[in-house]
């Protein structure tokens, strides 16, 4: 099992001074995972269950047909959900993010006494290793948010550099009444998410390179790893 050393090299929040920025937030950052390859990290980041586990307050994150799912039904269906992240490429392949797919999530945010639960739908807009882009929106009562994010992996000498950015806009009551807390709260969510992502990746054993290679097989002519990695026709090696 490889050990990933995580280095917080840079983490920026939307702090540029502009008087109309206040419920629009921009976050971006870069972190490095040592002793890992782009493929390994990409594989880990392909697993919705891993993301579900990393997202603070996330009850479930599941693929759905369209951007207007029945959250009550989903809640019922996934009430006792107990799915573990895995490092098994076969398993990941079954459920890996796919470009154009929509995912529904219930995310409870907890900022002291303020505990909105957001019904969220995210769409994978682009997914082409090593780059991924997603956008989505969530609503909780008469508050809502819209976000768009991208992530780019860059293989360094002995590790992977993950560069990411998220933009979010908040609407409704929280935007209006919660001015003082929105930025730090969102900051906290983003920070916790990425640090959990790193923990999750760190805890995997997928870095045993062999696992990944062994999985090269059959069915789809792109090969399972290509599928997981979101490569189209292996053109991006």
């Amino acid at each position: 099992m490889a050990i990933f050393l995580v280095v917080w090299r840079q983490y920026r929040v939307g702090v540029s001074y502009s008087h109309r920025r206040h419920s629009h937030m921009e976050f971006s950052g870069t972190f490095e995972l040592e002793d890992a390859t782009t493929e390994e990290v990409w594989l880990a980041l392909s697993d919705p269950v891993m993301i579900e586990h990393a997202l603070p307050g996330c009850e479930f994150l599941v693929v759905v047909e369209d951007t207007d799912p029945d959250f009550d039904a989903l809640r019922e269906e996934h009430a006792d959900r107990d799915v573990e992240p895995t490092s098994d490429p076969e398993v990941i392949a079954e459920r890996a993010f796919e470009e154009g797919n929509h995912y529904a999530a219930i995310i409870g945010i907890s900022i002291g006494p303020v505990n909105p639960t957001f019904e969220t739908v995210v769409t994978i807009d682009e997914r082409d290793q090593p780059y991924m882009e997603a956008s989505g929106e969530g609503s909780a009562g008469d508050s809502s948010f819209e976000m768009s994010s991208w992530m780019d992996l860059d293989g360094a000498d002995d590790g992977v550099e993950v560069e990411w950015a998220t933009e979010a806009d908040v609407f409704g009551r929280i935007a209006q009444m919660g001015q003082r807390v929105i930025n730090p709260a969102a900051n906290q969510v983003v920070k916790r998410f990425f640090s959990s992502v790193q923990d999750e990746i760190r805890e995997r054993e997928i870095a045993e390179g062999s696992t990944v290679e062994q999985a090269q097989s059959d069915e789809d002519d792109r090969g399972i790893v290509d599928r997981i990695l979101g490569r189209s026709d292996g053109s991006k090696q």
């Binding site: 419920s23 806009d169 209006q176 001015q179």
Partner: peptide
């Protein structure tokens, strides 16, 4: 103050 989405961000006496 409104943000770019026309949300009033000075919506209370606290702000």
């Amino acid at each position: 103050e409104y943000d770019d989405n026309a949300q009033l961000v000075t919506g209370s006496m606290q702000d």
